[in-house]
Design a protein around this nucleic acid. Structure first.
Lengths: 244, 244
DNA sequence: CGACGCATTGATTGGATTCAACTAAGGTGG
DNA sequence: CCACCTTAGTTGAATCCAATCAATGCGTCG
């Protein structure tokens, strides 16, 4: 049951009751598939629904007049595409599927209701946007003050950590559907330079990456190369929001 | 009355009642000054209070092991430093005063109470963090896919728009207490290159910048140079949250 | 098969960094 | 009140990381 992705995610921080879990499963009734490379939401749209990624990878991106694209976030199962449109008028960026995706279309009134009914759920959602903000800050630092080698290493560490958090890493291997161009658009590099950098990471025995499967061969080494400190992901063992 | 900065800011989006305004003014009782260049909050801290900038400029920043610093946000009057620490355990970055600042130390329980008592205030705070997220996304794009010239122009446009929003621009002039090094740390450049770029913007008659006063001599021209589109700031004329 | 998308490699260019020196402005203390 | 010191801004020259341009390999899918 793919719906459980959200629940598993929120349970990382919030101690959800069975009622909460039922409610969450309930609002994910409208589930649709989206093929790779297609926009889930386009810039300028005023989405009628909230979108939640249940399966596959997507990316938040912006395209500049000159044609350059910058990816500002990767979305993996359990991530909301647009928790903000209830409050803000229109999308100031697009969301594209990077792999075939399964997306839940949630009535935004359902979210409103849910957050009123359960303060635990409200807290959990609030928490998730704050983590998103922390990730964004880290991307600014990463793309701003690290060189290509550290940058690629860092984003691989991040995605490894995030995928692990939702149980999608087995044996230090994970699904990484990105093309080198997409990885370049996320790290503010060119695909050519991304290619050379990946080769270096491979040559140094840190990773293995082929046909969209990333194997971390030396996690400590990769983290060292990246200067990776997972604090910003706010990975918790224990839920923040206790019972009641 | 500097406390009114917050109220004016929140009224941009929310149609606050007089009671709301009184409540907001009430929680800003503990006001302190902070000299320039001093940390308001340091990385790793677990702040006991929420901090709100009432006067002056501050910056969110991260320092890498090598010593490189990246500023990830500028904070101006009405901005919260740490709306997240109620939810997250510790600061994953520091906040430094860029000019002499006046900061309100707000009991986080007061915020909790306030957001429960007034859904308008809750909405307004929620909105403000979503705008922050939008600004952060724009910084990733700006520092990632624009060259130095566009980048500096863009950040000047942004700060002009934000200062204008809170009534701190008169005659296209605004207080800009940044050193060139701080501007460089925000745009992921070096202070040397920032210097040359500023000179170009001056030479082209777009701006005038001396002794911490920025004059926009050609707003349209600067925005064109930057590729600036203010949508992401979600500047509203009409409040989003209607009465009741 | 041919075509297209993606990965790879080489050669060259260029924007920004680095290193270094120097000026200007402001504050401090003898 | 001026010598001194510090901090910020400015300029020049050399260097470098990553971009650009261009060609090729390679797999897969219609």
């Amino acid at each position: 049951m793919p719906e459980h992705t959200l629940i598993r995610r929120l349970k990382i921080v919030a101690d959800l009751s069975e009622t909460d879990e039922r409610r969450l499963a309930d609002i994910c009734r409208d589930v649709r598939d989206c093929p790779a490379r297609q926009d889930i939401i386009s810039e300028g749209e005023r989405p009628q629904h909230l979108h939640l990624v249940l399966r596959g990878w997507a990316a938040r991106y912006k395209v500049l007049p000159g044609g350059a694209r910058q990816i500002v976030a990767f979305l993996i199962p359990g991530d909301f595409c647009d928790l903000h449109v209830t409050v803000l008028e229109e999308m100031d960026h697009g969301i594209v599927a990077l792999s075939p995706c399964t997306v839940a279309y949630i009535d935004s009134r359902d979210i409103d209701r849910l957050t009123l009914e359960s303060s635990r759920i409200a807290r959990a959602l609030w928490w998730s946007t704050l983590v998103d903000e922390g990730v964004l800050r880290t991307w600014v630092v990463n793309n701003g003050r690290r060189d290509a080698y550290e940058r690629i290493a860092h984003i691989l560490c991040e995605m490894h950590a995030r995928m692990k958090m939702i149980g999608l890493v087995a044996d230090e291997r994970l699904y990484l559907p990105l093309t080198q161009e997409e990885l370049a658009d996320a790290t503010s590099l060119t695909s050519v330079h991304t290619n050379r950098t990946l080769q270096r990471l491979r040559a140094e025995g840190l990773i293995d990456l082929k046909s969209h499967v990333l194997t971390i061969k030396d996690l400590k080494g990769l983290q060292r190369a990246a200067g990776f400190d997972p604090t910003y992901l706010h990975i918790r063992r224990r839920p923040l929001v206790a019972a009641a």
